[in-house]
């Protein structure tokens, strides 16, 4: 009997893709992200890493764009183009890893608190609300200030401060699923907690979590750059740390727009792509938004 089940799931996926395809913004965003991910994975093979080293860099400091350096150089004479391309690796990695952490924690808290209710829910929601209202950036920055500075701390700090939104969303969705009569029917059939969560709640909550995830990735990438700007980052090259160094080295007063623009534009493009994909997925996967919207 599992063959028809899989056939139906495949058909549903094909249908979802067909609907997604009609959303131009989402499609463009998805294409851009796919391209960037492939490039980031291959970057060590494509980029000569000597150009990233302060010692072996060949340019002079803050050179404007020229034939040799299409996007000029930074304060140590490194190519801004090269740095921006390389920076995608850390920015994407931080974005994805922090999102994974945040979504896993958020989904767990959301499902558990909605399904079990009672005091478990009260305690979990109290904690969620607490983290929800705290100024996330300030908390993340404080965490970074007291912990050793590394990329993994950045991931942890962003993950720890961004899960409550997911938890709220998942909880609301779980509550709405659990109020449906088919859950009551399943209980009357004798279904226990694992059965109800596994067969009914998760399958209908996860698609929305997936749509939300893409939005969280965008938020995490912005958070990474903001933390880096506040001086809270590891030693790796990321778009955020480039902007921080640009600011610290007086690129603004020197009018070195070529140093400021590329990493910022890269952030905006990536985050916008994730946002567009997320919104497109939401319309495809959330039946309530379907139809006349």
């Amino acid at each position: 009997m599992s063959a028809p089940v899989w056939a139906r799931r495949r058909a549903a996926a094909v249908q979802a893709w067909r609907e997604f395809r009609t959303n131009t913004g989402g499609l463009l965003g998805a294409a851009f992200i796919a391209l960037l991910v492939v490039f980031s994975l291959l970057a060590p093979l494509l980029i000569d890493q000597d150009g990233l080293n302060v010692v072996t860099a060949t340019g002079s400091p803050l050179e404007p764009p020229s034939g040799a350096y299409w996007l000029g150089t930074d304060e140590s004479g490194r190519s801004v183009l090269l740095l921006t391309l390389w920076g995608a690796r850390v920015s994407l990695l931080v974005g994805f890893a922090a999102t994974l952490l945040s979504v896993v924690v958020g989904t767990l808290v959301g499902v558990v608190s909605a399904h079990f209710g009672g005091w478990i829910s009260a305690v979990l929601m109290r904690i969620t609300d607490f983290f929800l209202v705290l100024p996330a950036l300030v908390l993340a920055a404080v965490l970074m200030a007291v912990l050793p500075k590394s990329m993994w701390t950045v991931i942890m700090a962003i993950g720890v401060t961004s899960w409550p939104t997911t938890a709220r969303l998942v909880r609301a969705q779980t509550l709405s699923v659990e109020s449906r009569p088919y859950i009551e029917r399943s209980k009357a059939l004798g279904g226990g907690h694992t059965h109800i969560i596994g067969k009914h709640v998760l399958p209908s909550v996860l698609p929305l979590v997936f749509a939300n995830t893409t939005l969280v990735v965008g938020g995490s990438i912005i958070a990474e750059s903001t933390l880096a700007f506040l001086g809270m980052s590891g030693p790796e090259i990321s778009w955020g740390s480039m902007l921080d160094r640009a600011n610290q080295s007086g690129a603004v007063t020197a009018g070195a727009w070529w140093y400021l623009l590329p990493p910022g534009v890269a952030i905006v493009l990536v985050v916008l792509s994730f946002t567009l994909v997320g919104r497109a997925l939401e319309t495809v996967l959330n039946p309530r938004l379907k139809g006349d919207r």
Binding site: P4, V5, R8, R180, P181, Y182, E184, R185, S186, K199, H200, P203, S204
Partner: peptide, 8 residues
């Protein structure tokens, strides 16, 4: 609503 819309 008594049937899960995703289940055959």
């Amino acid at each position: 609503s008594a049937l899960n819309p995703r289940h055959t």
